[in-house]
Simulated assay, not measured.
Amino acid sequence: MSDIRVLIIDDDFRVAGVHRDIVAGIRGFVSLDPVRTAAEALSATRADSPDLVLADVYLPDGDGIEVVRSCGVDAFVLSAATDARTVRRAFRAGALAYLVKPFEARTLADRLERYARYRNLLSDSAPLTQDQIDRAATALRGAPEQASLSRSATERTILTALTDGEASASEVAERGGISRATAQRHLTALASRGLVEISLRYGTTGRPEHRFRLAASGAD
């Protein structure tokens, strides 16, 4: 089977470069030159015929999900957006996967390797059996429990920082040597998964402070 040609659509050239390097590092994949706008993406899909696009949602001139809908190419959506409406829109538009930024390189590499298996299983020109179709779907999706249990290096840093006791996002950032914005984002994600608990501390003035602590399962 020929190499899988991948088009990256992201307006941040640094992020696009990281994703390009991940793609290029996987045997059987070739990364086309990344593009940064919806217009460039649609032009590139016509001119370069990629097999797969990796599309951000927020582009300078439009919506990456609409690009996915319009281009008629297999696609993953890669975005920091975590609201249910955006995720549903991505899947309705035909996205095969939705990866929440930031993610580890291994996460994207794993999804690409699954995609290669999926394409291989669906490459036969003969009519497919139900078993072959089911195997292809399983190869693409993988075991959901594995994805839900994976933790990034940043998350592990934050969970380790909370072993010293309850803390604010700023205190977690200081303990872990990361920015407050990064700590806040990951703490919120960990709380949504039940690994971290949030409480409020009321002072004499100003807004209450959010405090974070490990949930019973957070240190597992």
Rank of each mutant, 00 (worst) to 15 (best):
4 I>C: 13
7 L>I: 09
9 I>R: 03
9 I>C: 08
12 D>N: 09
19 H>C: 01
21 D>V: 02
26 I>M: 03
29 F>R: 00
31 S>W: 00
33 D>H: 03
35 V>S: 01
37 T>F: 04
38 A>Q: 05
38 A>L: 06
41 A>C: 07
52 L>Y: 05
52 L>G: 02
58 Y>W: 06
59 L>Q: 04
61 D>F: 14
61 D>I: 14
67 V>K: 00
68 V>Q: 00
69 R>C: 04
71 C>E: 01
71 C>L: 10
71 C>D: 05
82 T>F: 03
84 A>I: 08
84 A>P: 02
89 R>K: 07
89 R>G: 04
91 F>N: 08
94 G>P: 00
98 Y>F: 07
102 P>F: 02
104 E>W: 05
105 A>C: 08
106 R>L: 05
107 T>R: 04
110 D>G: 03
117 R>T: 06
117 R>V: 02
118 Y>M: 02
125 S>Y: 04
126 A>G: 13
130 Q>W: 08
133 I>W: 09
139 A>R: 03
141 R>E: 14
142 G>Y: 02
143 A>S: 14
148 S>H: 14
150 S>D: 10
150 S>H: 12
151 R>K: 14
156 R>N: 11
160 T>C: 10
161 A>M: 09
163 T>P: 08
173 A>N: 09
175 R>P: 13
175 R>E: 14
180 R>K: 10
181 A>P: 03
183 A>R: 10
190 L>W: 12
191 A>N: 14
194 G>E: 10
195 L>W: 09
203 G>L: 09
203 G>I: 08
205 T>S: 09
205 T>V: 10
207 R>W: 12
208 P>S: 11
208 P>Y: 14
211 R>E: 08
212 F>A: 09
212 F>W: 11
213 R>K: 14
214 L>I: 11
217 S>Q: 15
218 G>M: 11
